[in-house]
Amino acid sequence: GYDPNALYCICRQPHNNRFMICCDRCEEWFHGDCVGISEARGRLLERNGEDYICPNCTI
């Protein structure tokens, strides 16, 4: 089920109804503003069928 207190992202904070994006490599969720991806950019990636790779996986 959905846990509203689950911690995500590099900031280890809950979802808090903020835009989030999922890394296509590790499948962890990240707040867009923490990883520099706007909601519009996230939608563009999705539309173009491009993967989002998080900072942890791009090292």
Rank of each mutant, 00 (worst) to 15 (best):
1 G>S: 15
1 G>Q: 05
1 G>R: 06
2 Y>D: 09
2 Y>G: 14
2 Y>E: 15
2 Y>N: 15
3 D>T: 11
3 D>L: 09
4 P>R: 12
4 P>G: 06
4 P>T: 06
4 P>N: 09
5 N>A: 02
5 N>S: 04
5 N>Y: 01
6 A>D: 02
6 A>N: 11
6 A>C: 02
6 A>W: 02
6 A>E: 03
7 L>G: 13
7 L>S: 15
7 L>N: 10
8 Y>P: 12
8 Y>F: 11
8 Y>V: 11
9 C>W: 02
9 C>D: 00
9 C>R: 02
10 I>R: 11
10 I>H: 13
10 I>K: 08
10 I>L: 07
10 I>G: 04
10 I>S: 11
10 I>C: 03
10 I>Y: 02
11 C>I: 01
11 C>D: 03
12 R>W: 03
12 R>P: 02
13 Q>P: 01
13 Q>C: 04
13 Q>L: 07
13 Q>H: 05
13 Q>T: 13
14 P>C: 08
14 P>L: 11
14 P>Q: 13
15 H>V: 13
16 N>H: 13
16 N>R: 09
17 N>V: 03
17 N>Y: 07
17 N>R: 08
18 R>I: 04
18 R>Q: 11
18 R>D: 05
18 R>S: 13
19 F>C: 05
20 M>I: 12
21 I>Q: 05
21 I>M: 07
21 I>V: 14
21 I>G: 02
21 I>T: 05
21 I>N: 02
22 C>N: 11
22 C>K: 12
22 C>V: 15
22 C>T: 15
22 C>F: 14
23 C>H: 00
23 C>Y: 00
24 D>K: 15
24 D>S: 07
24 D>C: 12
25 R>Q: 14
25 R>F: 08
26 C>D: 01
26 C>Y: 01
26 C>T: 01
26 C>H: 01
27 E>K: 15
27 E>F: 06
27 E>V: 05
28 E>I: 04
29 W>A: 14
29 W>Y: 12
29 W>T: 15
29 W>L: 15
29 W>D: 11
29 W>S: 14
30 F>P: 01
30 F>T: 03
30 F>C: 07
31 H>R: 02
31 H>G: 02
32 G>L: 11
32 G>P: 06
32 G>Q: 08
33 D>R: 10
34 C>Y: 00
34 C>F: 00
35 V>N: 05
35 V>S: 03
35 V>K: 03
36 G>W: 02
36 G>D: 11
36 G>Q: 10
37 I>G: 06
37 I>R: 09
37 I>C: 07
38 S>Y: 05
38 S>E: 06
38 S>H: 09
38 S>I: 14
38 S>V: 12
39 E>F: 09
39 E>W: 06
39 E>D: 06
39 E>N: 09
39 E>G: 04
40 A>I: 13
40 A>H: 05
40 A>S: 09
40 A>F: 04
40 A>R: 05
40 A>P: 06
41 R>Q: 05
42 G>Q: 12
42 G>F: 09
43 R>S: 13
43 R>P: 14
44 L>Y: 09
44 L>I: 04
44 L>T: 08
45 L>V: 11
45 L>F: 03
45 L>M: 07
46 E>H: 01
46 E>G: 07
46 E>R: 11
46 E>W: 04
47 R>H: 08
47 R>G: 13
47 R>T: 14
47 R>C: 07
47 R>Y: 03
47 R>D: 15
49 G>V: 05
50 E>V: 09
50 E>P: 12
51 D>N: 05
51 D>A: 14
51 D>M: 03
51 D>P: 03
52 Y>W: 13
52 Y>N: 03
52 Y>D: 02
52 Y>R: 04
53 I>W: 10
53 I>V: 09
53 I>L: 14
53 I>Q: 09
53 I>T: 14
54 C>R: 00
55 P>H: 09
56 N>D: 10
56 N>Q: 06
56 N>E: 10
57 C>N: 02
57 C>P: 00
57 C>D: 02
57 C>H: 05
57 C>K: 00
57 C>S: 00
58 T>R: 15
58 T>G: 10
59 I>D: 15
59 I>T: 13
